[in-house]
Simulated scan of single mutants.
Amino acid sequence: MYDREARFRMEDTMNAARIEYTEKAVMNMAARRCDVIKISQSEAVLALLTQYNLPQQFYLDIPDARITKIGCMLMKVHPNNTIQVRFLRLLTQKDMDRIFVFSTHPAHRDRKLDIRSW
């Protein structure tokens, strides 16, 4: 399925995020902090603080940009505590702009948010 999708260009960013998933079949929800270091409309690269076992599917929240419950699928785990994920739905350009406005990456320093589009 993913090999037939159009690829979007990954852009560098630095946003705080949270991964939420269920542990032990549906007993409780676990939440872990991470950083979004690269993002496109269909995928992202997340930097984790430490290594831990993640399920194949989980939710991603980006609280600064007020984006919640992005469904994600784990694609690749890298040895330097980063993971590559694919989104279960494409992010809109409005969501991408909101992520870049709240990014602390130097490339997005002069981004402004159009409040009429909210």
Rank of each mutant, 00 (worst) to 15 (best):
F100P: 02
S40I: 03
I62Q: 05
P106D: 00
D97K: 15
D114N: 15
V85L: 05
T13M: 08
S103G: 01
R116M: 09
I99L: 09
F8N: 07
F100S: 00
M29E: 04
L48Q: 00
Y59H: 13
M14E: 15
A25T: 09
V45S: 02
L49P: 03
A30Q: 13
F8H: 12
D114V: 03
T50C: 07
Q41V: 04
P79S: 04
T92I: 06
D61C: 07
D110Y: 13
A6P: 11
S103H: 00
R109H: 14
T22R: 12
I67Q: 03
M73S: 14
D12P: 06
R32T: 06
L91H: 07
S117E: 11
P55A: 01
V85F: 01
K38S: 08
I39E: 01
P79L: 06
L49T: 12
M1V: 12
Y2W: 10
E23I: 13
M96W: 05
R111L: 12
D95P: 05
T92P: 06
K76C: 07
V45G: 00
F58Q: 01
R109Y: 13
K76R: 11
A6W: 08
R32I: 05
E11Q: 13
T50W: 05
M96E: 02
L60M: 10
A17S: 12
E20N: 12
K112D: 05
R66P: 00
P55D: 01
Q57A: 10
R86Y: 01
I37Y: 01
K112W: 06
E23Y: 03
G71T: 09
F8S: 06
S103K: 00
N53R: 07
K94H: 09
K94A: 10
M75A: 11
V36T: 04
T13V: 15
L60D: 06
R86M: 05
F102H: 14
D35Q: 14
A17C: 15
C72L: 08
L60W: 07
D12C: 09
L49M: 12
Y2H: 14
N53D: 09
K112V: 09
I62K: 07
Q84I: 09
R9N: 08
G71F: 10
R116S: 08
I37G: 04
R18P: 01
I19Q: 02
T104P: 00
D3Q: 13
N53S: 08
T50E: 15
L54N: 02
K38A: 13
M14I: 13
V45R: 11
Q84E: 13
L54M: 09
N80V: 07
P63R: 05
A17L: 04
R98Y: 01
V36Q: 03
L74S: 04
R98D: 03
V36N: 01
N81L: 15
L88A: 02
L113W: 10
F8L: 04
D114S: 05
D35R: 10
V45M: 10
S40K: 03
T22Y: 12
E5I: 04
I83F: 00
D114I: 06
A47H: 07
S40L: 03
E20T: 15
R9W: 10
D97Q: 15
A17M: 04
N80A: 10
A6F: 10
K76Q: 10
A31Q: 13
A25V: 11
D114F: 02
T82I: 04
I99C: 02
R89G: 12
P106S: 01
Q84H: 14
Y52F: 15
